[in-house]
Simulated scan of single mutants.
Amino acid sequence: MTTTQGEIRCLVAKVGLDGHDRGAHVIARAFRDAGFEVIYSGLHKAPEEIVQAAVQEDVDVLGISILSGAHDTLVPKVMNGLEEYDAKDDTLVLVGGVIPEEDREGLKDEGVAAIFGPGTSIEETVEYVRENAPER
């Protein structure tokens, strides 16, 4: 499933009313520095807006940054939207933020490939994307 790094298109997205975007900016820059093509959604996007951006930009990777605690509501809406566009299986979906351990399995059941919490190294995240981004 590996793709060459120059071919990987990523959308780093902030969903909902969460205004904490430092982590999203750090990841966006790290992905760009790793040679990925990066699109940043900006703040306060509805799940439908994130889905539209992911589909229109034909991204390989969707990184959702969420710190608001609304992950159990907002992330499934994004996943359902991707499924409606038949994009769920073609998009590696990652979630970053403070996600309680007891909520992680439910998000993975929805189709989230990996969850990265505070303290995860940039190298680990970049390597995960390199190894798991869908081939085009």
Rank of each mutant, 00 (worst) to 15 (best):
M1L: 08
T2Y: 11
T4C: 13
E7P: 10
L11P: 02
V12E: 09
A13V: 10
A13G: 07
A13M: 10
K14L: 15
K14F: 14
K14E: 04
V15Q: 03
V15G: 04
L17V: 08
D18Y: 09
G19I: 01
D21N: 04
A24R: 11
V26T: 06
R32G: 11
R32P: 10
G35E: 14
F36A: 13
E37C: 14
E37D: 15
S41Y: 06
G42T: 06
L43Q: 12
H44C: 14
H44D: 12
K45M: 15
K45V: 14
A46P: 04
E49V: 02
I50M: 09
A53S: 14
A54Y: 00
V55S: 06
Q56G: 10
Q56A: 15
V59H: 13
D60N: 13
G63V: 09
I64N: 01
H71F: 13
P76D: 07
P76L: 13
M79R: 00
G81I: 03
G81S: 08
E83D: 10
E83L: 00
E83K: 02
E84Q: 05
Y85D: 08
Y85M: 12
Y85T: 08
D86V: 04
T91L: 02
T91S: 02
L92M: 01
V95I: 09
V95R: 10
G96S: 13
G96A: 15
V98M: 11
P100Q: 11
P100G: 11
E102Y: 12
E102V: 13
E102L: 13
D103F: 15
R104K: 12
G106W: 06
L107K: 05
K108A: 00
E110S: 05
G111W: 12
I115N: 09
G117M: 10
G119H: 07
G119Q: 10
E123R: 07
V126F: 07
R130A: 01
N132D: 08
E135N: 09
R136I: 13
